[in-house]
Design a protein around this nucleic acid. Structure first.
Lengths: 120, 120
DNA sequence: CACGTATTTTAGTTTGATCTAAATTACGCC
DNA sequence: GGCGTAATTTAGATCAAACTAAAATACGTG
């Protein structure tokens, strides 16, 4: 039982990512698209933290990077997380937590997905 | 399963307090004495957070306030925490985490326990 | 190898959690 | 009420995590 594990799931943003990855593999880009309120860079950094805690792993597939959850690391935490987001109110609560705990600068302008056509 | 619970145990300082209270009731002062690197005020604030998350409760005994863990709130987390601090290296790891995550101003001078004689 | 797409990394900014110090509140006792 | 001890609350300071924007890196394809 590593303390880094608890710190890792202590962040609502990282729990959001874990939830997305829970029952499917996703590319970094797909994860970002599901989280419209942060930049791709921010997602990538959180994925790095999760990977360092052993909670996710990735493989390279062509120019994509595919992430998946490493449930074996989670152990007793897995049941707790599942219980949490089986809760009907989970998504609502998470949003509240995210809003409350937001750090870093607010984006100056609406950011765009790097996958879509962007002039300039 | 409440998310506030996970956030609450996400802080190493609060885990330290939970550990102290795990198998005994303690007054706020006793908890503070066991944590010489923070002020009484800081301990009190963390106890408040833990209480709001339902992780501890307190009763008043004369001029003392006695805290205890509410294990029923912890549910599956209890096993995880116990596993963590059964780990021989737990105390070492916690110290590292505390050092790394320290916030707020460094104390200007050595602070004193409010229970001991203090001139001025 | 130039170009396009996907992702990570770097450099710099912001902000809430954590802290200190001091003021305040709470309780018991004489 | 006044004093002493215990604890909480308030006001202000600090700092690392979480963020943005931009630059750099990685990979495939014509």
């Amino acid at each position: 039982m590593d303390a880094g594990l608890i710190s890792a799931i202590g962040s609502p943003r990282r729990r959001e990512i874990l939830r997305l990855l829970w029952d499917q593999e996703l590319t970094a880009g797909a994860i970002h698209q599901a989280m419209p309120d942060v930049t791709f860079g921010a997602v990538s950094l959180q994925l790095k933290v999760l990977a360092e805690a052993g909670l996710v792993e990735s493989r390279t597939d062509a120019q994509f990077r595919v992430y998946r959850v490493r449930r074996e690391t989670l152990g007793p935490v897995a049941a707790m997380l599942e219980a949490m987001w089986t809760d009907a109110l989970w998504h609502l609560k998470l949003k509240a937590e995210l809003k409350e705990s937001r750090r870093g600068p607010q984006p100056r302008r609406r950011r765009r997905s790097p996958t879509k056509g962007q002039k300039r």
